[in-house]
């Protein structure tokens, strides 16, 4: 397993190299004004724009620009934002905690709800609880997250004159109550939205496993239903479910952009949103590579977890 993990890790820099190269080139060949022209503003002379391009390194050949960027990146120098000249590294460190909290809380909630209701639905197949859960899954997966988030804000405001805490993110260790008031409701919404697919997958997989011979044998041996369900059935149904959890993580990661925008949280999602609109190339390319890194690592964790869930899986 260790060798398998190492082999997968060797692929990590290769994948990141490919992603970073594609992103770097694409951002620079897109039509439109160069960042230097935008920064220089109206009335700037060609000389001023040229000087700015030189300062930003934009007049170098694209592969030289890429080489410099990658070299700096490997040295831990992520560069600066084009417009504010703030350190990207500092900004990332500042913006990471709220985004991480949203993603993790949503993922935990989504996983618990998805697997939990999936099992319930499978146990009560074609009975009232199954119908209720399936209806809920379809309903929640049909409603866009931004709409749910808007309702989350508007409905309590009109009904009870209640508002989410305003003014941005407050770390949990500073003020747990305010942090939870701010983060829990959107995490529940993101989690529920992400749980719908997981619930249906869990149900389907569980139904298949519950009809297998070894489950019947376990029941015939007189094992308790909990043992049959969770030790035998669910564990054997786990492989596709874990794959789905990994996918849900990536989806929640994207969903955090909306949450951060709606709730005025200065996280990575909001940063990416504004950087894209402002064509802040250094920020966008850094965040895309970071996202690729997270996806690759998440997939690796999912792959490695197969062996833990199903001992028959061998990494040879």
């Amino acid at each position: 397993m260790l060798r398998y993990a190492l082999r997968r890790l060797i692929w990590l820099p290769i994948i990141l190299f490919g992603v970073s190269a594609v992103v770097f080139v694409m951002l620079r060949v897109l039509p439109g004004q160069s960042p230097a022209e935008i920064i220089a503003g109206q009335g700037a002379t060609p000389e001023q724009i040229e000087a700015l391009e030189e300062q930003l390194g934009l007049n170098e050949p694209i592969w030289d620009q890429y080489r410099v960027w990658v070299t700096d990146l490997l040295r831990g120098d992520f560069g600066e934002e084009f417009y504010s000249q703030k350190s990207i590294k500092d900004e990332f460190i500042r913006r990471f905690p709220p985004s991480f909290q949203i993603v993790m809380m949503s993922l935990v909630i989504g996983t618990v709800l998805g697997i939990g209701f999936g099992v319930i639905s499978a146990i009560f197949r074609n009975r009232s609880p199954d119908y209720v859960v399936r209806f809920g899954a379809v309903a929640f997966s049909s409603i866009p997250e931004f709409f749910m988030l808007t309702l989350l804000i508007v409905v309590p405001a009109y009904l009870w004159q209640y508002s989410q805490p305003v003014g941005g993110y407050v770390p949990f260790y500073e003020d747990p109550w305010t942090n939870m008031r701010l983060m829990l409701p959107p995490a529940i919404i993101l989690g529920i939205a992400g749980s719908a697919g997981l619930m249906r997958l869990t149900r389907t997989t569980m139904l298949e496993v519950l009809q297998s011979d070894y489950v019947r044998t376990a029941k015939a041996k007189g094992l308790r239903q909990q043992t049959v369900l969770f030790s035998h059935a669910l564990r054997n149904a786990g492989t596709p479910i874990v794959t789905a959890v990994g996918t849900a993580f990536i989806a929640v990661f994207g969903g955090s952009i909306i949450v951060e925008q709606v709730l005025s949280i200065q996280g990575l999602g909001q940063w990416f949103f504004f950087a894209s609109l402002q064509r802040d190339l250094t920020v966008v390319q850094f965040l895309v590579v970071y996202s690729a890194f997270v996806v690759v690592v998440m997939n690796l964790i999912v792959d490695l977890s197969y062996g833990y869930i199903d001992p028959r899986v061998r990494y040879s």
Binding site: I153, Q164, G167, Q261, V262, L263
Partner: peptide, 20 residues
Amino acid sequence: DFVFITDDNAALAAFLAGEI
């Protein structure tokens, strides 16, 4: 105090709740 509220609905909610 300038209270950072990016979303219009959130701003209205904050006003209704007396946060701004």
